[in-house]
């Protein structure tokens, strides 16, 4: 059975369809990656339109609280096996938005990220490098973020809920301004 899994993994690594979630900056790096100059289709990677069809979720740039909600929903609509690529510094530690009140700091706390691409902005070479690394990981059976998500679902859900479903003010020591109506 393990041979069969290896075969399946080999082909999965050769055919990865990508859904790019580009509400932050960095989307502009993808057209050159797709077209003549760098041509990611030679690795079997093509852009797809909906989460149902996609294997890779590529998240570029910062994620506001609002967009995080959509990312989680989109990620859960994708079907296993699925992988997440975090693109740019903002997905690693918030980047230049490190102290912003509405940009999350680290994507990995909310959904499992298989590979980060560091940089602000990462060049298309870096994206391709990530794709190749991901391919190797998939073929070796190492990219198991989606299983991690299932196993640690409560932990991820708690993190998501802490950000998305707040029921009390975050900063308690500062008194609320009196509203006059």
């Amino acid at each position: 059975m393990s041979e069969w899994t290896e075969i399946v993994d080999y082909f999965r690594g050769r055919s990865m369809w990508m859904l790019h979630y580009c509400t932050g900056c960095g989307a502009i790096e993808l057209p050159p990656t797709m077209t003549s100059r760098w041509d990611m289709e030679r690795f079997g990677i093509t852009p797809m339109a909906t989460p149902r069809q996609a294997d890779i979720l590529l998240i570029t740039g910062y994620l506001a609280i609002k967009t995080l909600k959509r990312v989680v929903y989109t990620y859960e609509q994708m079907q296993a096996p699925k992988w997440v690529l975090g693109f740019g510094s903002c997905t690693i530690n918030g980047g230049i938005y490190w102290d912003s009140y509405n940009v999350i700091e680290r994507l990995d706390k909310y959904i499992p990220v298989d590979i980060y691409i560091a940089g602000c902005m990462p060049r298309p070479e870096a994206i391709l490098d990530a794709f190749v690394k991901l391919k190797e990981m998939v073929q070796k059976g190492e990219a198991k973020g989606y299983e991690k998500y299932v196993k640690n679902y409560e932990w991820y859900k708690a993190n998501q809920d802490k950000v998305l479903k707040r029921t009390s003010p975050v900063l308690k020591e500062i008194e609320k301004v009196t509203k006059i109506g």
């Binding site: 979630y21 909600k69 959509r70 990312v71 929903y73 609509q77």
Partner: peptide
């Protein structure tokens, strides 16, 4: 209800 809505909930 679980349908493609372009990420919107």
């Amino acid at each position: 209800e679980d349908n493609y809505t372009a990420g919107q909930i």
